[in-house]
Design a binder for these strands. Structure first.
Lengths: 125, 125
DNA sequence: CGGTATCCTCGACGATACTG
DNA sequence: CAGTATCGTCGAGGATACCG
């Protein structure tokens, strides 16, 4: 079977290993280089496309659009288009997206705790 | 700057966006298709190489070895070699690895909550 | 401003063969 | 049993150009 597999996850083993299914699912909807950070960036408030792009800095327009579309398709963010000239588009977290924030917060906390050490110990590498 | 970037994360923006650094770090050490699940599988007890391979099923030996080596290099798992014939190698979580379990548990919980729905609603797709 | 469309690179991963 | 070595594929993501 193995649906929901945009990013190369066929995962037939899901059939037998039901317990692991949840992890695989969550990993799948957050696959990609920028999704965690986009969600984190949307935490305080909705953001315009250009704000997100400026924050991420070195992301290409194509990639950003793709990641946003995928997040929208998974129901994690809402895309609000204001029919103005020039156009304005604002992205915000849905409730399903907000429920990911505890995970992202934990990851931030974990990285702050262990990442700094790596940075120091790599100083010479 | 931008060290710790095995998987294509240059991330100059880390310099300005310190807050995001933790997320990027954690995402980096868990990059790869199998790492979450390997860690999850090591939760109850240490496991032999062949046990892990059997559980994951459709992973190639090369990939599994690579993922395990990366996890070991990041200090998330411990590799215990028993000099026997035939050889026996057991992998176990380190304390740094165990501290990731809350994150993985949350992901499992999240996926169980939302993933099942997708599976049902995709039944026709 | 907020996208599309197209091309290209590059690295993760699988397949296969071989080994101490 | 637990790897190593080599090769090939495949797709994510960047670069660039253009559009309503």
């Amino acid at each position: 079977m193995a649906r929901l597999c945009k990013d190369g996850f066929e995962r037939e083993f899901i059939e037998e290993q039901r317990e692991v299914y949840g992890i695989a699912y969550t990993q799948n909807i957050l696959s990609g280089r920028w999704k965690y950070i986009i969600l984190w960036f949307l935490k305080p408030s909705e953001r315009r496309y250009s704000e997100i792009k400026a924050f991420l800095g070195n992301i290409s327009q194509g990639s950003l659009t793709k990641q946003l579309r995928e997040l929208e398709a998974e129901g994690l963010i809402h895309r609000q288009v204001y029919p103005e000239v020039p156009p304005r588009v604002e992205y915000s977290l849905t409730s399903k997206g907000k429920e990911l924030l505890p995970i992202i917060d934990l990851m931030e906390e974990y990285g702050k705790k262990f990442g700094e050490q790596v940075e120091l110990s790599n100083e010479q590498a």
